[in-house]
Amino acid sequence: MSDRAFQVSRLPGFATIAIGVFLALYIPIFTLAAYSFNTNISMSSWGGFSLDWYVKAWNNDQVKDATLRSLIIALWAAVISTAVATLAALGTTRRKAFKGQTFIYVIINQPLMVPEIVTAVALLIFFAQIKVITGYQGLGYLILAHSAFCVPFAYLPIRARLEGMDLSLETAAADLYATPWRTFRHVTLPLLLPGVIAGAMLAFVISLDDVVITEFVKSGGQDTLPTYMLGQLRRQMTPEINAISTALLVLTIALLTAFFLINRQNDKN
């Protein structure tokens, strides 16, 4: 009857379901953001608009410490995991298929598949022994743990970019007297950069957001923003949490928007 191709968007009820899904996804977030501007201490009754909770959070030294710690860890984790992921992506795409390649993919993507709680417990035990032996108590454990589980998130966009790249460009560079290193430096890396930036941003956001592994690995006084918030929930819920969450949300959206704009600019060129 219809000579047009099948399109899911033409099924009856498509719009209703789509709107329903969007509402389910975003109403809680909007509610959270709205109550961060509440004058009342209550999370359920509206008492008027104010920025008090933002001021309070801003002046809270524990929040400041936790935020700074979160940013330091996320930055390091993003840098380390992106470097590792770039090498892994080059190693798995820039050579002939080899035996055990699927196994390598599984290993790289292991953090996506193993339940986070298992990794958390394993790291707790492993790091506890190292702490005993070395006596080191610093942020290094958290940075290492975050770097490890961020690798697949950085790896996937970089590998996608590499696979979409025209291999003859590297052949052409070699033909034009570029050594393998200069081919990488002048051709592969510049073309790979959007993938690397995407991977790093994803890793940054994932690290910033982590609760489970951080909760297990952190030493005393090493709260990150998410674990601090979790700790607060156990005591008294105030809209300060809403304010912090909203700020975190805005930061994440800003990062993703920046990434999107950078990518679009690159595609235009």
């Binding site: 025209d166 003859s168 460009l169 052949t171 052409a172 070699a174 034009l176 051709v187 073309l191 060129n269």
Partner: peptide, 20 residues
């Protein structure tokens, strides 16, 4: 000899121009 050490250049079927 590897390609970068040969005084020979190629025009590729796909051109392979550097897009950046």
């Amino acid at each position: 000899l590897p390609p970068n050490k040969r005084p020979v250049n190629t025009v590729f079927q796909s051109y392979a121009l550097f897009p950046h």
